[in-house]
Design a binder for these strands. Structure first.
Lengths: 345, 345
DNA sequence: GTTAGCACTCCATTTGATTGAGTGCTAATA
DNA sequence: TATTAGCACTCAATCAAATGGAGTGCTAAC
């Protein structure tokens, strides 16, 4: 027995999914027979549905219930059957143009906007700095036993570090060290700094080489700290809008996941590394690496703030999320972020 | 008819509250008659309970149910009948001594610790900087059109600001401005900077007075930005452990409140301003300024990181929270934070 | 003042009946 | 051969009635 996906089966499957996305209820044959323009009786639909179930695209929660899409069904839908709708969401532009200097504020605002617009949960990761170039380093003396190291990277990402020093450094030494560091390190991406370079700097630093080591350590550390990406979420309470996620057990796990942001980091990392044409990825159900989200779908997109500073933005919702809308929204947002950056520089 | 709180009534009320805190179920007369050492029959207890209800300390959710404490009952309990238990929670010390430079990481860690230990939701606000003194200001040139202003305050709180400048500033000018700013402003609390002072500085800055204005604006702004306090929460999923908070409606509202941290800021502000002996405050039910938390109790404490840098830490839970334990935990934590600060300097 | 006992109330749980949506199968139809 | 009508069957959801139990309030006795 060879079951093939006929044109008609596809139409029926599509109708089932569309309907289920709207209502969240299992959908039965009679409904489909009325909705589609195929003019088929419910009985025929039943036969087709039976086939579709056997093929694995839909499942029956229990006998004598309608059918709902399986993960595989959603996957087919997302991959081949979606019509894109690049809807509203233009208000974004306004909102984001309210100048917002602080990066994290901006990110949180974007997340919130996305969450309220879609009625799903949104998440956003700060752009990763580590692919990024050092623009400027400044050491200053705070007091006799401490110096302050400020590292500014492309995109005006600023890192501060307080470094204890054994003895008071005079102005001249500081100046020398500053020049030394800047001439050697400016314009370099952080992973481009290698041992050879460091020892060269140390040599030139003479008796203060110990401090150089500390400074570079501090820089490395502040970069590293950024590597376990900060991830913000917004609209967590939206999960209560979807009964299939709202029972105590699941809700608790999901909300917990949002707090443990390093879990989300995994997701984010996946998106950042895994490159495909659009930069948009869809994880359905068990496709997500996070166990607690096995009943959710996650759609992520990569945004870019020029010069290789890339972050991830995503939407988390029930498996029956409105994929079209979500993907449209993400595209709009990433595009806006791009624009924003251009206008700023 | 004069109803007085006899010794016996107090004992009974106490027993009711204790029992209710544990079970979360309305408690009946028979239970009390067995639990207390008063050796009274359930009938007598019933009479007393009837009195207590009339006095407003307990309420009956419906006829023929047991009694539960009213807000007023909890209030009496917290104010007069609690025995403090300074329990465990000593593991804190270990955890916090893992050196943790980044302030916000530390805070989040503390919040998490508190949440997992108490099984309630915890919140913590970053220490407010605005009562604090400027330790050090540093202007540096980033490129032709931007300078970087770094402000370090007591407690090593660091603020960065990028300031656009119309023309390139040479090293000498920058040095002069740096000295100027530092000599005038160091050691001042931020609210101590007044107009007279600013105009004096401007005068001395001569042709660069415009930049001074920008710098001071930037300083003020970065301080102000801090004024709508950052508040972190942890353990939000714990609310699902208490059926009386876990229904969709309430849970959604509560979780939403945690995200809208400016709501929590209100709470925090209240605690910071309102000074009482211990620094610990208890808001029961409608006593909280936040409508969404009318079914919760909130216990807050003020912590201090030396030199007037004060923040708030709090616990949010059901009204039947274990007040003794919570207050004990908060005391331990604030104490530990205090110690931590001392060891660090 | 305290207690035992009893009638009463009301919630929670169970039980059973009913309904309705939906399926699968079969036989008739085009 | 594909489609459809019709029917029997299943099962979740809903509702109503029955049951049980916890708790109260009252009264009369101690």
């Amino acid at each position: 027995m060879e079951l093939q996906l006929s044109e008609r089966k596809i139409k029926i499957l599509q109708a089932i999914i569309r309907n289920y996305l709207e209502t969240g209820e299992p959908v039965g044959s009679r409904t489909i027979s009325k909705y589609t323009d195929l003019n088929l009786s419910s009985a025929t639909i039943r036969n087709e549905m039976s086939d579709l179930e056997e093929m694995g695209y839909i499942v029956q929660p229990h006998t004598s219930a309608g059918r709902i899409p399986s993960d595989m069904g959603y996957r087919l839908y997302v991959d081949t059957m979606m019509e894109e709708k690049d809807r509203e969401l233009e208000e974004l532009k306004e909102m984001m143009l309210e100048k917002e200097d602080k990066m994290d504020h901006l990110l949180k605002q974007v997340a919130k906007l996305l969450a309220t617009n879609t009625n799903y949960v949104s998440m956003i990761s700060a752009p990763a700095i580590h692919t990024n170039k050092i623009k400027f380093i400044q050491l200053s003396r705070m007091d006799a036993s401490q110096i302050l190291a400020v590292v500014v990277a492309e995109g005006n990402v600023i890192k501060n570090n307080i470094i204890p020093v054994p003895e008071r450094l005079d102005d001249e030494t500081l100046l020398k060290l500053n020049i030394l560091l800047n001439t050697h390190l400016n314009g370099l991406a952080l992973e481009e700094i290698n041992l050879g370079m460091i020892s060269a700097i140390k040599q030139q630093a003479g008796i203060h080489s110990a401090i150089i080591a500390d400074v570079i350590d501090a820089i490395a550390e502040s970069i590293k700290a950024e590597e376990d990406l900060e991830v913000y979420t917004s609209g967590a309470n939206n999960i209560f809008k979807y009964p299939e996620l709202a029972d105590h057990q699941k809700a608790s796990e999901i909300i917990n996941t949002f707090e443990e942001s390093q879990m989300l980091t995994e997701l984010v990392q996946g998106t950042l590394s895994d490159e495909n044409s659009t930069g948009i990825q869809v994880y359905i159900g068990n496709e997500t690496p996070i166990q607690a989200m096995k009943d959710c779908s996650v759609v992520t997109a990569t945004y870019e703030l020029g010069e290789g500073m890339r972050g991830t933005i995503g939407i988390i919702g029930p498996k029956r999320m409105d994929y079209d809308k979500v993907i449209g929204a993400l595209k709009t947002i990433t595009h806006q972020l791009d624009e924003l950056y251009k206008n700023k520089t």
